[in-house]
């Protein structure tokens, strides 16, 4: 399961960042988006996952993120 969660986080982080970088590059610099290879995996994350994620409210996204295993689920109360 650890490998699965790492795969999800690595890819979601990469493609969400790239989508945001594309918008900010256009807005601030008038430049094109980041470049990368076009593979079936890219198409899934870029055209399916990112738009879907962006439609969810932050509270829902946050709950999903916090449901993943990690240090945040250990005791940090003090």
């Amino acid at each position: 399961m650890t490998a699965l969660f790492r795969w999800v986080r690595t890819n979601s982080e990469k493609y969400l960042l790239e989508a945001q970088q594309a918008e900010l590059a256009q807005r601030y610099l008038g430049r094109p988006p980041p470049v990368g290879p076009r593979t079936p995996q890219v198409l899934f994350w870029k055209y399916l996952f990112v738009p879907l994620y962006r439609r969810l409210p932050w509270k829902v996204k946050h709950l999903v993120i916090l449901a993943m295993p990690g240090s945040h689920r250990r005791d940090w109360s003090s």
């Binding site: 650890t2 969660f5 790492r6 999800v8 986080r9 993943m68 295993p69 990690g70 240090s71 689920r73 250990r74 005791d75 940090w76 109360s77 003090s78």
Partner: peptide, 18 residues
């Protein structure tokens, strides 16, 4: 750490408490 069965998180970092 992974080979020793110590739990890792979604970042690939070792899970620790405070």
């Amino acid at each position: 750490a992974a080979e020793a069965g110590i739990k890792l998180g979604s970042t690939g970092g070792i899970i620790v408490d405070q």
